[in-house]
Nucleic acid binder design. Structure first.
Length: 371
RNA sequence: GCGGAAUUGGUGAAGUGGUUAACACGCCGGAUUGUGGCUCCGGUACGCGUGGGUUCGAUCCCCACAUUUCGCC
């Protein structure tokens, strides 16, 4: 089902936006954080547990589901929602990032990308049309245009050519897109070059996508560079369309980029950190494996309302993680996802109150201050 | 009682007459940003059963003792 975006308010002192995503008869507020469920599951969590974090949209991944189990299987199952038993909105990433991140050998041509599956040696070829066709078969609510995610740093000449390719692919994907019940977002690339970001954004806007994403960040650049890149992109994006910053989920990055006009985020970090024993808290990230938590019988956070914090102690979770028990990963995943979603809830309040700069100041003081 | 073998960190263990005693696990930390979950990176024995001896030098050679273990009576 297609999603619609409604801008409700812009914060008085910044570009931060309060908005709504309408999904049938459900309404979700933005700024929003989307948990990632690459293989049609948010790792270690049931849909009910994800929902208990007050989640809205969740992600799944085109590339992974294309290879396993194959988009035809998902279509035969009745689509992604039925297949994974999730009745909220689902967004699929295009596969562009996987080409960038996990194909060692790749051959980028004007037509598409040839690359080798490094685990079984299969030759793979992904094109904009193919990416769209897979996403339509999967039946996600939001599809993403196939793009080239450029590494950082990259010289201007390369980024310029890459942006042209991404735009060409966006156009081809848009033309190939047939499902009227599925939204399609375009990806703004352009690296750290303001004019290329502007060019990319404006060309995409001409194609009239349902929403716009900022890509090519969180690829190793420093934070200031990331914030600049985001600013270069959002500056030229239309007010009445949703803006999604792909792959960003460090708490401070969410705060900073909401201030720069981003509405939605996704990131694997809350679940990956959880699997490795880390918990996000108001006062910074903690490693639950540290020996100091062995006999700490308090919750991860006394200001958190998640299932883990309401029912379990740090000592218990410390023990589970030390023993490699999946339930420990589950509890930390619930906590971390809830933490990020709660962060966006607080940001919404701050936008309503026109106090987001004060919120940022306090946030940094708490998160990075000495405990 | 007699004979053999063994004795290296928290654990399993490798090793050499001469710089920083391998490796693994554990333990102590760190990393992790559009996810091939169970990963990656650091640190971790002032010491080689105890006491003597040989030697320029011994964890490694010799002797005694202790402990463990196997076999025999």
């Amino acid at each position: 089902m297609k999603v619609e975006y409604r801008l409700k308010k812009t914060e008085a002192h910044t570009k931060a936006r309060l908005g709504e995503i309408i999904y049938g008869n459900k309404v979700y507020e933005t700024p929003m954080f989307m948990p990632v469920g690459t293989q049609a599951t948010v790792k270690t969590l049931s849909p009910e547990q994800v929902a208990s974090c007050n989640s809205g949209i969740i992600l799944a991944n085109t590339y992974h589901l294309w290879l396993r189990p194959g988009e035809d299987i998902v279509r035969s199952a009745g689509g992604l929602h039925k297949f994974m038993n999730y009745d909220g909105p689902i967004l699929t990433d295009s596969g562009g990032f996987q080409v960038f991140s996990l194909a060692k050998k790749k051959d980028i041509t004007p037509d598409g990308v040839y690359f080798k599956n490094q685990y079984n040696g299969d030759k793979l070829f992904l094109t904009p049309e193919k990416s769209i066709a897979i996403q339509e078969a999967l039946g996600s609510d939001i599809a993403i245009s196939f793009d080239e995610c450029v590494a950082w740093p990259a010289d201007r000449k390369y980024v310029e050519e890459s942006v042209k390719r991404t735009l060409e692919w966006a156009k081809r994907g848009k033309e190939a897109h047939t499902r009227s019940d599925q939204s399609l977002f375009g990806v703004v690339q352009g690296g750290e070059y303001p004019d290329l970001r502007e060019y990319c954004a404006k060309e995409l806007i001409k194609m009239n996508f349902d929403g716009y994403t900022v890509g090519g960040t969180s690829v190793g650049e420093d934070k200031e560079t990331m914030y600049k890149m985001v600013g270069y992109a959002t500056k030229h994006l239309p007010e009445d369309k949703v803006r999604y910053l792909m792959g960003v989920g460090d708490p401070i990055d969410i705060v900073e980029n909401v201030i720069r006009g981003i509405d939605i985020f996704d990131c694997v970090s809350p679940t990956r950190l959880a699997r490795h024993g880390n918990a996000l808290t108001k006062y910074g990230k903690i490693n639950i494996k540290n020996s100091q938590y062995k006999s700490d019988f308090t919750p991860i956070s006394d200001v958190c309302d998640c299932y883990a914090c309401k029912n379990y102690t740090k000592a218990y979770i410390h023990h589970l993680i030390k023993c490699d028990e999946t339930f420990g990963q589950t509890l930390l995943s619930i906590h971390n996802i809830r933490y990020l979603i709660h962060l966006t809830e607080e940001l919404r309040e701050a936008i309503k109150n026109d106090s987001i700069l004060e919120y940022r100041e306090k946030f940094i003081e708490d998160y990075y201050g000495t405990k």
